[in-house]
Design a protein around this nucleic acid. Structure first.
Lengths: 133, 133
DNA sequence: AAACGCAATGTTATGTTATAACAATATTGT
DNA sequence: ACAATATTGTTATAACATAACATTGCGTTT
């Protein structure tokens, strides 16, 4: 669930820098790792990174992985409506797969409704060992 | 998922203290909050708390809420086999409900299998507004 | 253009969460 | 008792995140 706010035409300078760092990374990055990568661009303080990340997550352009305290660029294959995202995190190689599954979304929504709970957002992270490992 | 290791007959001193704190709390507690509560019992360092928490989580007696950086005592109604746990977290009142749902467990397992992912454990946290709020 | 409002930025300091490293003590099995 | 193992205690530090406040940029209204 969790519909996103309107995504602006153009990201701000810091948002672009952070988004760029996430996009060119192969895996999740911590805020401090992003900061280190962007010192060359003039960024100096954690807050500059966190503020950009907050916005990117709000726009749905990035996701936070709660169990890693790290962030990834959104890899929606067919973008749009589906807003319950799950992640498979390989504990061996660190690889993260983003999954958008309708059945899971329905299951979670049902679970919430059964308990008269109004779901605003959901966190689903599967930990284990991936295919390649 | 995530079958637990054998739960010992008797918890150690620190494990018992931490478990006691979790049980008498109405909601999730951070490690440092637990520490503050247990200073009277002679505990002084965060590590004493974290070590106990690690064991309690390993035993399945407590759960970590990733999106809160906090811990709760396990409230299994009918204990035992079912090991995919979900939490509903009310963002208004802070109340947390622990859910053990077979259909959800199956759904997650299926999702993993479809991608040849060996699931070791799962994190499911629904954020929203509860019944009472 | 001038004045305003508002979002984004920059900066310093601090708060919060978690672990490393190592020494000492307690517990269990033989 | 002895060895092996788990637990504990302690200090220090690492890693993650936000508070508070001053400043800048930018579009809108007048």
């Amino acid at each position: 669930m969790s519909e996103h706010v309107h995504v602006p035409e153009k990201l701000t300078k810091n948002q672009s820098l952070v988004m760029g760092a996430l996009e060119k990374a192969e895996g999740p990055l911590s805020a401090y790792t992003i900061l280190d990568e962007l010192r060359a661009e003039g960024l100096r303080a954690p807050l500059q990174i966190y503020r950009a990340l907050d916005k990117l997550v709000e726009f749905g352009l990035a996701h936070r992985l709660e169990s890693l305290n790290a962030f990834v660029a959104c890899r929606h294959t067919s973008c749009g409506e589906q807003k319950t995202i799950a992640f498979m995190i390989c504990e061996t190689c660190g690889h993260v797969t983003e999954i958008s599954d309708k059945a899971l979304a329905g299951q979670l929504q049902l679970l919430a409704e059964q308990r008269a709970f109004v779901m605003k957002s959901s966190i689903v992270e599967l930990r284990g060992v991936c295919n390649s490992c």
